[in-house]
Design a protein around this nucleic acid. Structure first.
Lengths: 361, 361
DNA sequence: CCGATCTTGGAAAACGGTTGCCAAAGGCGG
DNA sequence: CCGCCTTTGGCAACCGTTTTCCAAGATCGG
């Protein structure tokens, strides 16, 4: 029977080889050309009859076909990806923003690359290069810019090259580079926080500031000085202590201020610092807000659950992220050139602030 | 002079067109073939003389050439990307793990796609499909599996298809799918937390459990029951209250338990729930740990800074993430088939737990 | 001084899609 | 019944790399 097996050649059914199913397979099975299959599956505007259309879809479903986006990207020059650079994803501020970006991107079937720069210039440059190499359709910088000259020049060169390639850049923080951005008012909002404390009666207000090289540090602490100036209070340099934008940074800065000029209120550059300050003050035996008031900035989710519920400035972080994504897509569609949508912030008064203690004006 | 301009044809210098510079440009400028340029720039093992090598590198640098990874991926079937699915990036538990994954991936020049599934089966399936489509080299599931039958079947089908494509799957949570995973002991560790409270003298210990359909919920609450059984304490179903794995979920569950069976200690399914419970208990006028002790699980960064510093189980989240990345690469290199590296957890005792109140055994 | 061996570099075929251009077929009015 | 227009679908080039296969030149022992 099956003796002369050698001769038989079933050319047609030969080698599906358990390989990944490609458009070619779908086309073959559906009895159409690859072009037609592509047009059906990729939502092209080229007309294809309903019958053919159904046939192709059926086969694609049956075969579990998943178009290779790498190939598609190569052909269309659109990768359907966005690169996001944050300082640290595990920092709630950034994590919440990323969440918003992700939601916005997901709606358009875009995927998000997320990377942390750790405020390291070299790492940031490397990330920029990597994203360029991956041909992301947009780069979103939510990490604040660094005020370092040669770093700035390099970033600008890289971003320019990236944009020349057709990429879109969106800024979500203070940055020297010129690009469309979505923002909120760091300076003005910090000023209103400080004014709020002044109105409560505080005169010796300390400020816990972030790393000096971050652009956002500059903006926020400018707000602190604005408010003091407007109230006619002379700024005392000793009332400002710096540290990293972290819990430990805040704790250390608070401790140093308390062992020195003894302010009646502390405004922190962000919630993390405020939370650290709070804990340290309590550990040192101070009452909050009885002896000293503490205020933060950002309103991360935990602000309300800190040692003492924190008075802070509410930035709608997730919404902010979503706005970022929206801006990206509007730019990709060529709808806008450089709008600057902003997001409103508001003071959230919780338990950590109150009037200054009686015994010391 | 330049009258008969039509005729002149400068074929050579015609249209650089300010386009993106490709390998072809580099090759042309360096006076070598595209293949040679590729070999130099992509670290191929094919021998190329040092002279040629230098020439190519020089030109590449001068032109600011960034290889198109999409094209490279298409040719090599390696995209140098990893897809990560978490429940929610803005949840510290996941954010810290993602950070570890990112660090590990970055070391190998891999980029990370991060997406949140929100515990929504459909969304999770869509993400799986999207990652497949983007041809990520690995998919890491850090979101816990859902115990829903037809969802499970679909996930398994999708993952199988993905693996058939050459992809690697790594699990970082309780999941029914069979794949290499890195884990920690949810059940045993919860049991030791509960035992710790029993040893402190507690007998009526409440448990704040997560959503029943999550595999991790099952594992952790099993640990709670193990410890009770071992101590010969009869489990009281009324001492278990469920809720979402969130601050609000914990607050609500705690409130319901206190208005009912009045436990002397509360063990939460995770830190978020514990933080919510803590706040609510304080608001209701209870002393923690005077009236009731509270314990969490995970040791997210904020655990130490909650309303009362939280006793909890420390999972080295960032390290855990890094292990996940390591496993991915070992699998990609074909070094291992299915190891199950684990990470050690330890009890961290802070201020939120103590002996039960005197007046009630 | 010659064939064999090593180096080095190029041509061309993938990888898996998209799309401009063209042709076949079907529908239509005259 | 015929020529023309409109659908519909196929061919083939292209996106930017990698890699296989091959050839030319250099090196070298005999």
């Amino acid at each position: 029977m099956s003796a002369a097996s050698e001769g038989e050649k079933v050319t047609d059914e030969l080698a599906p080889a358990s390989q990944v199913t490609s458009l070619r397979d779908v086309a073959r099975d559906a009895g159409v050309s690859v072009s037609t299959a592509s047009r059906v599956l990729s939502g092209s505007s080229h007309p294809v009859s309903q019958g053919t259309r159904d046939k192709v879809h059926d086969v694609a479903d049956r075969l579990g076909f998943e178009p290779n986006r790498l190939a598609r990207a190569l052909a269309t020059a659109r990768s359907q990806t966005i690169g996001v650079i944050v300082h640290d994803v595990s920092d709630s501020y950034f994590a919440e923003i990323v969440r918003g970006l992700e939601d916005g991107a997901g709606l358009q079937d875009y995927a998000l690359f997320v990377a942390s720069s750790d405020r390291d210039p070299d790492k940031e440059l490397a990330l920029l290069r990597a994203f360029t190499s991956h041909r992301v359709d947009a780069i979103v910088l939510v990490a604040s810019g660094l005020d370092l000259d040669d770093y700035r020049a390099k970033v600008e060169a890289l971003l320019a090259r990236y944009e020349a390639l057709g990429g879109v850049v969106v800024l979500m923080s203070e940055h020297s580079y010129e690009a469309p951005r979505v923002f909120y008012d760091n300076r003005g909002t910090t000023a209103s926080m400080v004014k709020y404390l002044i109105d409560l009666g505080h005169r010796r207000i300390g400020y816990l500031t972030g790393p000096p090289e971050l652009s956002v540090t500059t903006a926020r602490s400018a707000g602190y000085h604005d408010a003091l100036a407007r109230a006619g209070i002379e700024a005392d340099p000793d009332l400002v202590a710096g540290g990293r934008f972290s819990i430990e940074g805040g704790a250390a800065a608070a401790a140093s201020l308390m062992s020195g000029p003894r302010p009646t209120a502390l405004v922190a550059g962000n919630d993390l610092m405020a939370i650290g300050a709070l804990r340290r003050l309590l550990d040192l035996g101070y009452q909050v807000p009885g002896d000293v008031s503490v205020a933060g900035f950002d309103d991360i989710e935990f602000a309300a659950y800190a040692s003492v519920p924190l008075t802070t400035v509410r930035i709608p972080l997730t919404e902010f992220g979503r706005r970022g994504a929206d801006l990206v897509f509007r730019l990709l569609r060529g709808e806008v050139q450089s709008v600057v949508p902003s997001v409103e912030c508001e003071l959230v008064v919780r338990a950590s602030t109150g009037p200054p203690p009686r015994d010391r004006t």
